[in-house]
Design a protein around this nucleic acid. Structure first.
Lengths: 86, 86, 86, 86
DNA sequence: TCAGATAAAATCGCGC
DNA sequence: GCGCGATTTTATCTGA
């Protein structure tokens, strides 16, 4: 703000503003990517694919990934419980 | 309400009240079951089981069920797309 | 399991299985009630009510109840402190 | 795939695969940004800010933006109706 | 444009 | 008290 001496409210306000700007910038980027995803679905649809099926495939592949990760986590839990954790 | 002739606001209010009471009753039941679930976890913990592991097992089994259901759904989608739906 | 003598792992496994089954049964019941609640909202909607508003009413009433309960608890604390608890 | 002559199924499969990969890549990026946002909130919290309040501010500012944009759109409509659109 | 489904954000509640 | 997972509420999207 150009002032050398600022009371703590001003510092706070300035910090707060910075946080908010970073968040809003990131949210804007996120929204842009969401739009890109929508575009890809549209393009796929325009090429004759069934969007519903593609969504389901993507969803199933995500579930596979999630399940695999959860299985690794529970393995770690088991090993910990057995005192064999790395 | 005991009145034979009610204007539509009264009818509305009465209906609204009935809906709200049904919802609140159901939510109370739901809360009671959530408490029961908590009790089972506590009991398991008291028997020496690791709650975290049980939660993970329950979660994995739920994922299995979900995945199986999604796979059936996508199969239906494929069959529909091929004009072979039942 | 039909065996008279089981080692502790088997006992453990059997207990664990029982806990998991109880939890899953309760979770299923909870889910069923959640569905019922959704149905009531749908029915209300079909009767011309605004679901969003009903949700808000239910939420406000829940807050009121919680507030009242908390006030009663504070009153109990006061009474206890005064040696006048029931 | 290295083949000059592919039947249409292979072409389809290849196209489908490409769409799915693009979607998954974008979803991964989106998730990464969501994580970044969470990190900023955490950082703000660590600096002593109330996350709930920051969320509310961000939300209000978003509403303002939407409202402003909507008002501009309405203004454009008016101008169009008057044959004064840019 | 609306309902119904899907996904995201915010909130709640638990265990550590 | 804080992260983390579950739940709930809100917003978005798609197909009719």
């Amino acid at each position: 703000m150009g002032y050398v001496f600022m009371d703590s409210s001003a510092v706070n306000a300035s910090h707060l503003r910075a946080f908010i700007e970073r968040i809003e910038k990131l949210e804007e980027e996120k929204r842009a990517i969401a739009d890109d995803i929508k575009d890809v679905y549209s393009e796929a649809k325009g090429t004759g694919f069934d969007v519903k099926i593609i969504r389901k495939i993507v969803s199933l592949r995500r579930m596979d990934r999630d399940k695999r990760r959860e299985e690794e986590e529970i393995l770690d839990l088991y090993l910990s419980a057995l005192g064999m954790a790395d």
